[in-house]
Nucleic acid binder design. Structure first.
Lengths: 341, 341
DNA sequence: CTGAAAGCGCTTACAG
DNA sequence: CTGAAAGCGCTTACAG
């Protein structure tokens, strides 16, 4: 029924091995032979059997995307980029959710990963936050000798490839944007205390304020936890004293920014006329809100794409570990745009 | 390094074939032999090589989730259910986005699917809306003789397995809930005109109104397109005449319901005191809004799970096509809850 | 530049 | 209840 490499060889009048060489773009094939084989392959609608290739070469042509993330939106974007890259290089992506909530210690986390990857041999693994910061998970991959790449890890990992963006720089630029709009008192809402991005975004905000010689008052910074609810609570505190409240609030993610907008609307504070609001992430919510949110667009799709590339691109794999810094984008929408500016 | 079936056979003192029988739960193995093999397999941390299994049995142990859907939330949930089912049966899920926007006619859509599945042989395919309604896609699968199952198809497909929920019934129950709360004038906002769920949900609404002998005025039904924006527009029309506007609005998805809430808030109409609002889908948005949305929770995760089960469960596959109707759930939250009721 | 042989780790079909 | 042989469709390592 389906054509095999032997069929192609027979019809083309060459050996199986030559067909293999042509299809894998190996050198040492006469141009004429190459063309002939290619023509026959097309004619026979030949496509290699992945299982056979895998068995013979002890590769799987599979890349696992291992995640443990509550945000379907984030995963969907990473996955989308990863799949596109896989297609380009003849691989396939297998998403593998990994629930580590029951595995408290490092050793049992390691065992969980080992178990997961024992059943399915893959040629590479992509780790998304917060797994990219888990020592147990990383250790399992290292001892199993499976190539892997970290997406947005918090630390500067030595000897491990990673794809990331500069959260500090992004938060700093967003704050600078607000300062350029004339704001002098800018409130900030921090994210979840255990999330690695929280400290980085806060640092970017502080840097911009310091560079502009603007003091940051104790009452201008509130702790949140990335939830809408925490944005509401923080906004209520920031906006309590109407005579001395900030003219702009930078929430370190969109959900919290939505909470700010909702409080402002309830208190009759006009956004952006009386209060500018910024978020971070550019989730779908940012465009649904009224007014639409000014926010930071992370290169999530690109991180997924680049992660796969690092693992499977012949030009990159088996090379020393590399760190890929991808570009973010400030998306300016109505929530922080002074009229006429 | 990694144990093979031969290693297990050697250590257990039996033939390769016997090990194979034990591991695949085939009959005709002495209990003692079975136990011995199992013990050795565990000891050696043996796990079968998928590629070898696949090559020998001409199966792949892979299921493809083919989608072309703008909603990452929907896909993420389907995928989550599908992966869990795959794990239970020893399969793996490979998500395959399929962009059909450039393939206008049925023939080229068929070719696109053929091309996609030619490279990756899979044991089954799951088709999500709107692909589950595409004749070209269905035809490709049929001629390739790949087992497949439709998720939420609109029509009554003959001879094709499907998993779905009853949109008519759900919309009817939601409307009945509003009626039971004492509402007599209930506005309705229809969905996108080309989406199959639109007509079904509207029918459920009409049925409930008719059953309760409540007339549906021309001004009570507005056309939307499932977007937040269209919900805003529809709400503005429905609420224009404050003296004769409905006391409840049932939007046929959450995004449009969010639009209604936003208009009400702008007009100073209290939700739910002056206006009850209901949505459909129970997206994350439903819980972020203030007040939180009363809505219909679709069994999306369950559809993904069941779809895989139909394809790979030995008790179900190779059986005649079956239709699986899964249960929805009315989620009553503050946006449509009369106080004290 | 090309090919014949062996083998990857399983299952299938058959035999006993 | 158990096993020996052949083969799935490729690649690897070697030879020429």
């Amino acid at each position: 029924m389906k054509a095999t490499i032997t069929d192609v060889a027979k019809v083309a009048g060459v050996s199986m091995k030559t067909v293999s060489r042509v299809l894998n773009n190996e050198p040492n094939v006469a141009t004429k032979t190459r063309e002939k084989v290619l023509a026959v392959a097309t004619e026979l609608r030949y496509s290699p059997n992945l299982a056979a290739k895998g068995l013979a070469s002890s590769r799987s042509y599979l890349v696992a995307l291992v995640y443990d993330n509550p945000s379907p939106y984030y995963i969907a974007k990473i996955q989308s980029g990863a799949i596109d890259a896989c297609r380009k290089f003849g691989y396939h992506l297998v998403p593998e959710p990994l629930d580590l909530t029951d595995e408290a210690d490092e050793a049992s986390q390691e065992e969980a990963v080992r178990h997961l990857l024992h059943r399915l041999p893959v040629d590479g693994v992509i780790l998304t936050p917060p797994l990219s910061d888990s020592p147990g998970v990383v250790k399992a991959l290292e001892t199993m000798k499976i190539p892997f790449v970290l997406v947005a890890p918090s630390g500067r990992e030595n000897g491990i490839s990673s794809v990331k963006m500069d959260d500090i720089q992004a938060a700093q630029e967003m704050t600078e944007f607000l300062i350029a709009q004339g704001h002098k008192s800018i409130g900030f809402i921090k994210g979840h205390i255990e999330h690695s991005a929280t400290a980085l975004r806060y640092e970017g905000y502080r840097k911009a304020m310091a560079n502009a010689d603007l003091p940051v008052g104790r009452n201008e910074v509130k702790q949140g936890d990335f939830s809408f609810r925490s944005g509401v609570t923080a906004a209520e505190e920031l906006l309590r004293n109407r005579s001395a409240c900030p003219t702009a609030i930078f929430a370190s993610n969109d959900d919290m920014a939505a909470g700010v907008v909702s409080v402002a609307s309830r208190l009759g504070i006009a956004v952006p006329d009386d209060l500018s609001v910024c978020g971070f992430d550019d989730t779908p919510l940012a465009k649904i809100l009224f007014p639409q949110l000014t926010t930071v667009q992370q290169p999530i799709y690109e991180m997924g794409y680049q992660a796969v590339k690092v693992l499977v691109d012949p030009a990159l794999k088996n090379k020393p570990a590399s760190t890929h810094n991808l570009d973010f984008k400030l998306v300016v929408r109505d929530s922080a745009l002074i009229q006429g500016s």
